[in-house]
Amino acid sequence: MPTTQHISIDTDRCIGSGQCALTAPKTFTQDDDGFSALLPPDERASEDPLAREAARACPVQAITVAED
Rank of each mutant, 00 (worst) to 15 (best):
D48C: 15
D33Y: 15
A54V: 11
I15N: 01
A55P: 01
I7R: 14
P2Q: 08
I15Q: 10
L22G: 09
E47K: 12
D10V: 00
G34R: 14
P25Y: 06
T27L: 02
L39H: 05
G34T: 11
Q30G: 02
D33K: 13
T3P: 11
T29Q: 13
S17M: 04
D68V: 12
E67A: 13
P49R: 08
V60A: 00
T11A: 07
E47Y: 10
T3F: 10
C58P: 00
T29N: 07
E47G: 05
D10H: 02
T23A: 03
L50I: 01
I7K: 11
S36W: 01
Q30N: 00
F35R: 13
D31W: 02
A57E: 13
A45I: 06
A54G: 03
I9E: 00
C58G: 02
T23Q: 09
I63R: 05
V65A: 11
A62L: 06
D31L: 04
S8R: 15
F35A: 09
D68T: 10
A54D: 09
S36K: 01
A21N: 01
H6S: 11
G18S: 01
T11H: 09
R44W: 09
R56I: 15
Q19F: 14
A66I: 09
S8G: 08
A54W: 15
A51S: 13
T27R: 00
H6N: 12
T27H: 02
M1K: 08
P41H: 08
Q19E: 14
Q30W: 03
E67L: 05
Q5S: 12
C20L: 06
Q30A: 03
E67D: 10
R44M: 04
V60C: 01
G34W: 10
A66N: 13
I7D: 00
T3R: 12
Q30D: 07
T23L: 02
E53Y: 13
E43F: 13
I7G: 01
L50N: 11
V60P: 05
A37E: 15
D68K: 07
